[in-house]
Measured scan of single mutants.
Amino acid sequence: MTYKLILNGKTLKGETTTEAVDAATAEKIFKQYANDNGVDGEWTYDDATKTFTVTE
């Protein structure tokens, strides 16, 4: 399945997608991606749209 991440960081904003077997796997990938890019904030997930959002 395709999952989407919306980044609302102070210095980085944008979107990315990943292919993952489930939401938990996608979350791990996205949290590593956000960490690698210096984004740390409040996480939400919308199962209907398979979208994670992180807001600093």
Results as ranks from 00 to 15, higher is better:
27 E>D: 08
24 A>Y: 11
33 Y>S: 02
46 D>T: 05
50 K>V: 04
14 G>T: 15
21 V>R: 07
36 D>M: 12
24 A>G: 08
30 F>E: 00
20 A>D: 03
16 T>Q: 11
10 K>Y: 14
19 E>G: 11
45 Y>G: 00
39 V>Y: 06
6 I>W: 04
6 I>M: 06
47 D>Q: 08
36 D>E: 14
41 G>Y: 03
3 Y>V: 01
36 D>T: 12
6 I>F: 08
56 E>Y: 05
23 A>R: 14
4 K>T: 09
12 L>E: 13
26 A>I: 02
43 W>Q: 01
11 T>I: 11
2 T>Y: 06
43 W>L: 03
45 Y>F: 08
10 K>A: 09
25 T>W: 12
15 E>T: 07
48 A>G: 13
16 T>H: 11
21 V>D: 09
25 T>V: 11
36 D>F: 08
13 K>A: 14
51 T>D: 01
51 T>E: 05
35 N>H: 15
24 A>I: 14
17 T>W: 15
35 N>V: 15
36 D>V: 13
25 T>S: 09
7 L>V: 15
29 I>H: 12
29 I>M: 09
43 W>D: 00
55 T>Q: 11
50 K>A: 13
48 A>L: 09
4 K>A: 06
21 V>E: 08
22 D>P: 01
34 A>F: 03
49 T>P: 02
52 F>E: 00
29 I>T: 12
11 T>S: 11
11 T>P: 04
29 I>L: 12
32 Q>M: 15
28 K>I: 06
25 T>Y: 09
3 Y>W: 06
16 T>N: 08
26 A>W: 01
45 Y>R: 02
3 Y>T: 00
28 K>M: 12
12 L>A: 10
37 N>A: 13
55 T>P: 01
35 N>P: 02
9 G>S: 13
13 K>N: 13
16 T>Y: 10
52 F>P: 00
47 D>E: 11
44 T>R: 09
45 Y>D: 00
50 K>I: 03
51 T>H: 03
15 E>F: 05
56 E>T: 05
38 G>D: 10
9 G>E: 03
37 N>I: 05
30 F>Y: 02
10 K>R: 09
18 T>L: 10
12 L>K: 04
46 D>I: 05
4 K>W: 11
39 V>N: 03
55 T>I: 07
8 N>T: 08
30 F>D: 00
18 T>M: 11
48 A>S: 15
18 T>S: 08
29 I>N: 15
14 G>Q: 15
52 F>G: 00
3 Y>E: 00
22 D>A: 04
34 A>T: 09
19 E>Y: 13
2 T>F: 15
32 Q>P: 02
22 D>I: 03
25 T>L: 12
35 N>W: 12
41 G>E: 01
24 A>M: 13
5 L>R: 00
5 L>T: 01
19 E>H: 10
1 M>S: 13
2 T>N: 07
28 K>H: 10
31 K>G: 04
24 A>E: 10
52 F>Q: 00
43 W>V: 02
48 A>Y: 13
18 T>N: 03
1 M>K: 13
15 E>I: 05
9 G>V: 13
38 G>S: 07
27 E>G: 13
18 T>A: 13
20 A>W: 02
55 T>R: 06
1 M>T: 15
